[in-house]
Design a protein around this nucleic acid. Structure first.
Lengths: 247, 247
DNA sequence: GCAGCCGGGATTGCATGCAGTCACCGACGC
DNA sequence: GCGTCGGTGACTGCATGCAATCCCGGCTGC
C-alpha cells in the first residue's frame, strides 16, 4: 500500500489557486487574485466587490472580472446583494457551525482513507510538517498568524490529498477556505495554536501507525475541538466588542 | 424537538431549481432550463454545450448563456474541453464511487441530525412518501423511472432539509444530481428499486422512533448498498455493451 | 492508396455599448 | 426639526463586435 510519496492530483486550480502565476485566461487570473486578496484578509468580510471598480483597478474589462466575481460567489466567498453589487461574505456563527458540523465526518473519512494509502515518503513528509509546526508554536512568542494558518492548511490538505478521493479533497478545500475566512486572528491565541498542533500529532501518529479507526476518531475529535474553540473565541470577540462599544 | 412540520430553507434556487418559472435574470432562466434538460437525460452525457448554438436556440444573446454554462461546469454537470466548447459531463466509475464514498458519512449525519429535529408533521409526511414509494414498486410492473427517481430524490431531500444544516443540504443536493445523472436506467431494475424502498423504510423507522444512532447506521448502510448495486449495474452494462459491440 | 498540408468554419474569450434599476443624498415643504 | 420627494450617480445585466485559436475536412503530392 504505497505507490509514490506525493499524491498527484491536478492540484485543482479552482480550489487551491496555485499562485498568481500565468493563468490560462484573464478571468482565471482575476479570480485567483481576488480569491487571494479575500482569503488573505486584504479585503475583509463586507468589502464591496464592484465589477466596474475592480476592472478599473486591475486594468482589464468587466467581462473577465464579472466572471471571477461570480466564481467567488459560487464558492461561497462572496454574496450578491441585489442592487448593491457583490461583497465579501460575512459568515454568521450559524453558518460557521454548520460547516464544522459537516467537516467533522468528512475530515474523519479523509484520515481513514489516507491511513490505508500512506507511503513511507508520506510519513516522512508529514513528520517534517509537524516539526515545522512545533517550531512555530515553540517559543514564548508564536510565528505570524498567516504562517500558522498556512501550516495548518498544508497539514490538513496533505491528508486530504493522500485520501485519494478528489471529490472529498475539493469539498474540504472549499469549506476550509470559508472557515479560514472567518477565523482571522484565532491563531493569535497561543493556547489554541498549541492545542491544535498537539492534536495534529495525535492524528499523524494514528495515520502513520496504520490505525485507521483511531485516525478517524482523533480527527473527528480535532474538528470538534476546533469548533468549540472557535465558538468560544467568537463569543469572547463579541463580548469585547460590546465592552469596547461602550467606551 | 419540533417547531414546525416543514423545514423552510430558501429552497436553494441554485441547487434545487424551483421549476422554470420566472427567474430573476435571463442567466438564471437559461441555467435552470439547461440544468433541467441535462438532469432529465434530454441532453445525455457527452452532448455538446455550445454557447453560440444554445443562444440561438434559446433566442437570447451569448452572455447569459455563457454564464449558465459556466455554472453547470462549476456544479460538475458539464466539463470544458479547451477548444471544443463545453459538454455534458461523462462521469467515470472512479468519480462516481468517490461521490458515494463521501456521501455515505454525510447522509448518515443528515439522518442523525434529522432524527433530533423531526416533528410529528414530518413523521406523517415521511410516511406518506413511503406509501407512495410502496405503490410505485408494488405491482408486477414498476412506475416510470423518472417517477422512481423523483420519489427517491424527494425522500432523501426531505431528510436533508430536516437536518437543519444548509451547507449539508446543498452539498448533498449537488452530489445527488451528479449521481442521478450517471444512473439513468438503474431504477428500471425492479429488484434494485424494491431493495431501495425497503431500506428507506428502515431509515424512516429509525428516524421516527428517535433512534439517532440507528438512523445513522442504516443510512450509511443504504448508501453503501446503493453504491454496490450501482457498481454491479455498471459492470453489467459494460458487459452488455461489449457483447453487443461484437454483434 | 496514403501521408501531409492548408483553408474554412466555428468557438471561445475579451472589450465595449446601452438601457433599466436602484441606492444614496441633498433640497424642499410642512 | 423632521419627513418626503426628486435628481444624480453608479451598478448590473444583456447584447454585440472583434481577434485569436483550434478542429476538421478536403485537397495535393508522392
Amino acid at each position: 500500500m504505497a505507490e509514490q510519496g506525493v499524491v498527484p492530483f491536478a492540484q485543482a486550480a479552482q480550489t487551491q489557486g496555485g499562485e498568481d502565476a500565468i493563468g490560462g485566461s484573464l478571468a482565471d487570473t482575476a479570480y485567483r487574485q481576488l480569491r487571494r486578496s479575500v482569503l488573505s484578509g486584504q479585503r475583509p468580510p463586507g468589502s464591496p466587490l464592484s465589477v466596474s471598480a475592480l476592472a478599473r483597478d486591475m486594468g482589464l474589462s468587466r467581462s473577465p472580472v464579472r466572471e471571477a466575481v461570480q466564481r467567488l460567489i459560487h464558492d461561497g466567498l462572496a454574496t450578491h446583494v441585489p442592487h448593491r453589487g457583490a461583497q465579501v461574505v460575512e459568515l454568521d456563527r450559524r453558518e460557521l457551525m454548520e460547516i464544522y458540523e459537516v467537516k467533522e465526518p468528512l475530515e474523519a473519512l479523509a484520515s481513514r482513507l489516507a491511513t490505508a494509502r500512506f507511503s513511507q515518503a508520506d510519513v516522512e513528509r508529514l513528520e517534517a510538517m509537524l516539526v515545522e509546526q512545533d517550531r512555530a508554536v515553540a517559543g514564548p512568542v508564536l510565528a505570524e498568524e498567516s504562517t500558522l494558518m498556512e501550516l495548518d492548511r498544508a497539514f490538513h490538505s496533505y491528508i486530504h490529498r493522500a485520501a485519494g478521493n478528489r471529490v472529498l479533497c475539493d469539498t474540504l478545500a472549499a469549506w476550509s477556505s470559508r472557515t479560514n475566512l472567518a477565523f482571522p486572528s484565532g491563531w493569535a491565541n497561543p493556547e489554541y495554536a498549541r492545542l491544535s498542533v498537539a492534536e495534529h500529532h495525535d492524528i499523524a501518529r494514528a495515520i502513520t501507525s496504520g490505525d485507521a479507526d483511531e485516525a478517524e476518531r482523533v480527527t473527528a475529535r480535532h474538528v470538534r475541538l476546533v469548533r468549540t474553540r472557535l465558538a468560544r473565541w467568537q463569543a469572547r470577540q463579541a463580548q469585547d466588542r460590546a465592552a469596547g462599544g461602550v467606551a
